[in-house]
Design a protein around this nucleic acid. Structure first.
Length: 551
RNA sequence: UGGGUUAUUGUGUAAAGGUAGCACUACAGAUUUUGAUUCUGUCUGUCUUGGUUCGAAUCCAGGUAACCCAACCA
């Protein structure tokens, strides 16, 4: 008895197409425009397209939709490829819409020969006015009735560089009164004397999205071309070109894009955050980009699981950031090495432990025995977390307070005897006694404690900078709020602890490793680290039940 | 005042005329040398009004709301 997992609507379409022998196998594609970095929203499309092909034994192409030379760059091409690979996917073919410029040009000529395209000399303002509005039909341009010969000549001259940018465009001749604005003689080629990242200066005319995307799908024999909801009106045009050109009938299917709380997802907005230096680049750990998440310490598996859990449907959605964090913790909990670090130190002295002495204690590296053990140094002077001591203990306080006992993780049980304050009234030193027979692993003391806290031997601890990240925005949906989305940026999204104490073993950490700083969260080394100064990023906190009670 | 798309609990997502399920969140409790993990439990939902039917989230009709469409962007 196997529980059958329900299919999403695209899987249902594919299974029906396969069952009816419409296709022998499927082909999908992931078609980014190389004008920015990939973000978590793209990962939904990536996981879907690659996942579908894997599930049904098909292929997936990576196709760069590079039809607008002025916004695109190879920097973006490289980052996109790296991000997809990091997520764990391999494309069957690396392709570019610009590979098809010759074919697309021939398609345009074909439309001209069929009387289905014309060169328009109107300015963009004139074209906009004649286009009408959603509630009023458009009117034909005076150039709409040009002869095939004239159109052929003019278009060839456009291609040959006889005209300046904006002087002429090629339009499909469809229906100026169509209810779908996109069918009112859409522009299919425009003049741009610009350098293209791949074709360099070969072309000065470039096809528009609508004249490139569907045909590219068709050329590659993509069976299921998946895009987001805002492209629904484009489907009619997509099919019109395929029909008039009589080429392979790729089909477009639309799904809802990913929205996430406390996050903005549009490339335009992300670009603003980078350009106006609200963040430190595309891979700032606070960014929802794949590279930002990676740098923050996210794992590919956690993102793939997230994309699996959010599902695929056609209704607008707003996913809780907490679901992404759940997927992250779910993965890290079983893979991250456990270590100790003290972020906000306060000194603890064990008065009955020989000040000259130190010993090595055994600590497990992780929840799984196969992760092994390591040794950690212990001595009479320790760093503990300031928040683990309360002068006046709260109700149900399990940690240190005068007279209370706690276990030092992997070490001994200690009892707080007294504490000292400095001139500011802050607690400066805590004095404890320890129970020698309570050593971790062979505790014969019989003492029961409610709390266990982490610690570091002051003489042995190393130091590091630690960067704590919080959500980038203060409000759930910054894009929907009145006013500039940037005014909702969380001023406390980054907290830098310039000197925290870390376990000596951490000085050998590498960039790929994931750690749980016990009781503090998951952390990883940042690329800014140097041998002299280690930098750790907090990937995500642990769930904090006590923190909620305390509030 | 045009066209298109969508409405299931706080959030996602299932249920193809027959028990409204699952996950996240939240909240309780148990276990715990991480107030983590794990385990158990709780959690006022089918946009609305009619209709068809023995039976409707599902079919029909009318409302309502949200989103998208008037870039030489994708």
């Amino acid at each position: 008895m196997s529980e059958e997992k329900s299919l999403n609507f695209i899987e249902e379409i594919i299974e029906a197409d396969l069952a009816s022998n419409k296709y022998a196998s499927i082909s999908t594609r992931f078609p980014p425009e190389p004008n920015g970095y990939l973000h978590i929203g793209h990962s939904k499309a990536i996981c879907l397209n690659f996942g579908l092909a894997a599930k049904y034994g098909g292929t997936t192409n990576l196709r760069f939709d590079d039809t607008n030379p002025v916004t695109e760059d190879t920097e973006y091409v490289e980052s996109i490829k790296a991000d997809i690979k990091w997520l764990g996917f391999n494309w069957n073919n690396e392709l570019y819409a610009s590979d098809y410029f010759d074919t697309l040009y021939a398609f345009a000529l074909e439309l001209i020969e069929k009387g289905l395209a014309y060169v328009d000399d109107s300015t963009s303002e004139e074209i906009a006015i004649l286009k009408g509005t959603p509630t009023e039909p458009g009117k034909p341009s005076e150039f709409r009735s040009r002869s095939i010969e004239e159109n052929r000549t003019l278009f060839t001259e456009m291609k040959n560089g006889l005209y300046k940018d904006g002087e002429k465009v090629l339009r499909a001749k469809i229906d100026m009164a169509h209810t779908n604005m996109l069918m009112r003689d859409p522009i299919i080629y425009r003049i741009k004397h610009a350098h293209h990242h791949r074709t360099t200066n070969k072309w000065c005319i470039y096809p528009m999205y609508d004249f490139a995307h569907g045909q590219s799908d068709s050329i590659e024999k993509i069976t299921h071309s998946i895009c987001t909801l805002e492209f629904i009106p484009h489907r009619e045009l997509y099919e019109w070109f395929i029909e008039k050109l009589n080429i392979f009938p790729s089909r477009q299917y639309e799904m809802a894009r990913l929205n996430m709380t406390y996050t903005v997802m549009s490339k335009r907005k992300l670009l603003q955050l980078v350009n106006e230096e609200f963040v430190n680049g595309w891979d700032d750990p606070r960014m929802p980009t794949i590279s930002g998440l990676r740098r923050k310490g996210y794992t590919p598996l956690s993102i793939r699981n997230f994309c699996e859990k959010i599902g695929v449907a056609r209704r607008e959605n707003m996913i809780d950031l907490s679901l992404l964090e759940f997927c992250l913790r779910e993965d890290l909990n079983v893979t991250a090495k456990r270590v100790m670090a003290v972020l906000d130190p306060i000194k603890l002295i064990i008065t009955n432990y020989d000040a000259e002495k130190s010993e090595e204690l055994i600590a497990e590296n992780g929840p799984d025995e196969t992760m092994g053990n390591r040794s950690i140094p212990f001595s009479n002077t320790l760093w503990i977390e300031r928040e683990d001591f309360m002068e006046v203990p709260a109700k149900k306080w399990f940690r240190l307070a005068k007279g209370s006992v706690v276990r030092l993780k992997n070490a001994y049980i200690v009892k707080c005897e007294s504490f000292e304050k400095n001139d500011n009234g802050d607690i400066s030193t805590i004095y404890c006694t320890y129970y020698p027979e309570s050593k971790s692993g062979n505790d014969t003391s019989g003492i029961a404690v409610k709390g266990t806290i982490h610690w570091l031997s002051a003489a042995h601890a190393a130091t590091a900078e630690i960067r704590l990240f919080d959500r980038l925005f203060k409000v759930e949906n910054p894009s929907a709020e009145e006013g500039d989305f940037k005014s909702f940026i969380n001023p406390d999204s980054l907290t830098i602890i310039s000197k925290a104490y870390i376990e000596p073993s951490l000085t050998k950490a590498d960039l790929e490793e994931r750690f749980q700083f016990i009781r503090k969260g998951y952390f990883c080394l940042d690329k800014d680290s140097t041998p002299e100064k280690l930098v750790f990023n907090r990937t995500v906190t642990l769930k904090d039940t006590w923190g909620k009670i305390a509030d």
